[in-house]
């Protein structure tokens, strides 16, 4: 069984958020980041599928529908490895709180739904340590689906799981696909100590629980920037809420 960063004696802590598309996890992790930043803590945020170089290949593969379950899995693992080796590990060594919008569990869930053997997928990611805390935003399937379908009616091919040939209707395919991913997440929940957040609640109510849980488990004072350094920097404000690109971009 892999170890967490704390167990591996890293000075930093990694907090991951997981959940279906439309579960509201990106909003929650954004608010969490703001809360930590405004306290003057060392925080870094990393998103699934965002490493610059690998992203070019991934988006080409997706646009031209070149990806099979195997290459889909491997290219996302490449992206993850790049962020892990170049950003996450060095920052955790330097004592940062690293927030990850999606972590290895996203791959465990999706790749297995796509038909890759679980042992193979887990084997690939076994270079990665486990998060110190993993929040799972659990919303009713219908609620998540509605959020996505309301906001962005044009579903992308891989996002809707169209490569699995579940249905020729993208909406129906998306429903079935997300349902299967949810099953995978729920099956992992105990094994990986997910902190399950009821994502049907109001945004503020969820954030309250998240902040409480973190305060209980992480001694936040240890992660303060040195005053002199922090004073020179204006806080970076990014409104990620309303122009967010999906993880499949």
């Amino acid at each position: 069984m892999a170890k967490t960063f704390a167990e591996l004696k890293f000075p930093g802590r990694l907090i991951a958020v997981e959940g279906l598309d439309g579960s509201g996890k990106s909003t929650q992790v954004y608010l969490l980041k703001r809360w930590l930043e405004l306290q003057g803590l060392r925080v870094y945020f990393s998103e699934w599928n965002s490493s610059e170089l690998v992203k070019a290949a991934t988006s080409k593969g997706k646009k031209r529908e070149l990806l099979s379950p195997t290459t889909f899995s491997l290219i996302h693992a490449t992206d993850f490895a790049d962020r892990y080796e170049r950003h996450l590990v060095p920052l955790l060594r330097a004592g940062y709180i690293v927030l990850c919008d999606r972590y290895i569990f996203t791959a465990y869930a999706r790749d297995v739904v796509r038909g890759c053997p679980p042992e193979w997928v887990r084997g690939i990611y076994d270079f990665a340590a486990l998060p110190d805390l993993t929040f799972f935003f659990k919303a009713e399937l219908e609620v998540s689906l509605q959020r996505i379908l309301d906001g962005r009616p044009q579903l992308k091919y891989f996002e809707a799981g169209m490569d699995l040939r579940l249905s020729s209707d993208p909406y129906e395919s998306f429903r079935i696909f997300q349902g299967r991913i949810l099953e995978q997440y729920l099956a992992m929940s105990t094994e990986f100590n997910f902190l399950v957040i009821d994502a049907n609640q109001l945004i503020e109510a969820q954030q309250l629980v998240v902040r409480e849980l973190i305060s209980q488990r992480i001694n936040l004072k240890d992660f303060k920037h040195k005053e002199s350094y922090y004073a020179k920097r204006a806080p970076v404000v990014r409104n990620k809420l309303w122009n967010e690109e999906g993880p499949y971009e």
Binding site: L53, V54, A57, G61, T78, A81, D82
Partner: peptide, 28 residues
Amino acid sequence: STLVSEELEQAKQGNILSRTTLSLFYAT
């Protein structure tokens, strides 16, 4: 490969990818 050969070549030129990353890129 059609999928990643260009990007892989770029990565090698720049020598910017770490071991696991380069390895997985080749596997892709």
